[in-house]
């Protein structure tokens, strides 16, 4: 567990300035604002490396453990860099009973990657997520902000194919 990158000075200063401005304009309790700040930080940096989490902890006067606890609790937050397209497969009860696990496996097979790891070409990160609240469309897959409903195993190849060239569908 050695060599964790905790050096804050290696973070992009221009992006940190934007994050600082965002934090400065927040009102209320630091602990309550933590999730908003993390959302913002991830939007700016793409993911939440350890040094960025530590930066947020210091900016909000919270412990590093507290921030890391929140980041690792929510599947929306990524500690590792993600691909250009984040493919999220809903594993909520409705999606699960309609075969989301098989859809997930098929997606992983076609892209040739593991869950939560960026694909070698840098295009995809595939995740399983908790219920996203679209049970009527089960099983549901989201790719970045786009939602695909009633996805069957047979649809996966075409769906992923649309993103494979690197230009979004």
């Amino acid at each position: 567990m050695k060599n964790k990158i905790l050096d804050i000075s290696s973070l992009d200063r221009a992006l940190l300035d934007q994050l600082d401005t965002y934090i400065k304009n927040l009102e209320g309790d630091n602990e309550e604002n933590l999730i908003h700040v993390l959302h913002r930080a991830q939007a700016l940096f793409g993911h939440l490396p350890h040094n960025l989490q530590l930066y947020v902890a210091r900016a909000l006067n919270l412990s590093g453990a507290k921030v890391n606890g929140v980041v690792t609790f929510y599947s929306f937050f990524n500690e590792e860099p993600t691909g250009k397209y984040v493919v999220s497969v809903c594993m909520g009860t409705a999606c699960f009973v309609k075969g989301a696990d098989k859809v997930l496996q098929k997606i992983l097979d076609i892209i040739g990657t593991k869950k939560n790891e960026m694909s070698a070409d840098g295009l995809f990160t595939v995740k399983d997520v908790r219920c996203i609240g679209a049970c009527g469309l089960a099983p549901v897959v989201t790719i970045n902000d786009k939602v695909y409903g009633k996805v069957q195993v047979n649809d996966v190849e075409t769906l992923i194919g649309r993103y494979k060239g690197g230009q979004s569908a």
């Binding site: 905790l6 989490q53 902890a57 590093g64 453990a65 890391n68 606890g69 609790f73």
Partner: peptide, 15 residues
């Protein structure tokens, strides 16, 4: 802090 979720939860230090 507790890190992660469900069965994977572990009380651990930051990172």
């Amino acid at each position: 802090s507790p890190l992660k979720r469900g069965f994977d939860v572990v009380v651990a230090t930051a990172f």
